[in-house]
Design a protein around this nucleic acid. Structure first.
Lengths: 211, 211
DNA sequence: ACCGCCTTGTTTAATTCTTGACAAACTTTG
DNA sequence: CAAAGTTTGTCAAGAATTAAACAAGGCGGT
């Protein structure tokens, strides 16, 4: 792929495009123009056309874009045509909620193992999986080769585990721990999720909108 | 406050500043320079100074910023010096996880009620709260005047409830439903959280970093 | 109390991102 | 089959964001 460098702004919009195209498809749309999509998404048509053009020419003049085709193209760009095996660390409230709430398969991942340090949780079932002890991680990784991990464990634990996980072959972290995970390894990806920050932003909006 | 218009980019960084300042404070830092903070946060010192200057002059030349003082100032900007009463709709996995995982008080909110449509969940306890029936929302709002709501319910339910909630006085939504909530009312704030999009972004990073 | 060093607040410049404009090309209709 | 109407891909202009530069002012050591 001769993508010189896709800007971060564009990348952040891709999942949203994918989501809207899925909705359109579900509602029976066969074709969509940039103008119409822009209206639905609250963007400009120009931006949409320019975003898509980073990756190729998916549309047809005079017609627009084929919804299913475009969705498939963007899905491929996002890597959703394959599934990266993933493990979950931390089977507390949040870990369990994610495991049952997220559609991993359609997001490019396959959740294959859940681990927790608390012996009381080990052995409990979460969906189709059984919680294992953190002591079993190494063996599990050797055998099943997961390449991504969700971190739903306390900060101290996360800071300790990350290097170990990388050495086991993990090269992507979805981090819900309350700190910004930063990794020096070149090809390890990190997505920090800060729900607290999101809520704080809402607080700001409330307290300034009406002045 | 004579803020002509704070850019969205700045606002999105504020909660992160607040978080880092809290960490610094906890680690015994009394003062911090923009240069040092920039290094810790992976930003430029220039950006930090410019961001803070949107709201006033919090630093001192030759010294830097007082950690506790700056944190308090940013907290005030974010509206964290007061607590907006908030209710949770949906006591499923995700709703319960948020209720127990999020430090509402330190994010400018106070969770005072939980509601669910499922009769089996009504009456169950979540932390210090008891799940109520959605039928009781109106009465509860009239009595306790919540001004914010978390949406952890299915899309169809959310689309139906939102207008009703606004009419009851809710003017901020933290939306975890799988669609972009858009509200026409002028002073209703919405923060859409798409965990799926976040995970999808991670998929993209994995599948493009190593080419 | 003075001098040198450091750091802010602010101005200016560079870069990035977004929007507008338009020719080329396809679709649809008569 | 031709003409009218759309819509894309792309280029160029305009905003917005980020980074660099620097004068002014306070701190700390002597």
């Amino acid at each position: 792929m001769a993508k010189s460098a896709i800007s971060n702004s564009v990348i952040r919009r891709l999942p949203r495009y994918y989501r809207f195209l899925g909705d359109l498809e579900a509602n029976g749309y066969v074709r969509i123009s940039s103008r119409e999509l822009a209206e639905k998404m609250g963007l400009t048509a120009s931006q949409i056309r320019q975003d898509f053009n980073c990756f190729g020419e998916f549309g047809q003049q005079g017609y627009g874009y084929n919804v299913t085709g475009l969705k498939a193209e963007i899905g491929k760009i996002l890597g959703l045509d394959k599934q990266t095996p993933m493990i979950l660390l931390g089977a507390g409230n949040l870990g369990r909620a994610l495991a049952s709430h997220i559609d991993f398969r359609n997001r490019g991942f396959d959740l294959i193992g859940v681990f927790d340090a608390n012996p009381e949780l080990v052995g409990k079932r979460i969906g189709e999986l059984t919680v294992m002890s953190v002591a079993d991680i190494e063996g599990f990784c050797k055998e099943h080769k997961p390449e991504a991990a969700i971190l739903c464990i306390p900060r101290e634990a996360a800071e300790k585990e990350v290097d170990r996980l990388i050495s086991y072959g993990i090269r992507a972290f979805w981090n819900f721990t309350h700190y910004d995970l930063r990794v020096t390894h070149k090809d390890v990806a990190v997505e920090n999720v800060h729900l607290g920050d999101s809520l704080t932003t809402l607080s700001y909006c409330i307290n300034t909108s009406d002045e």
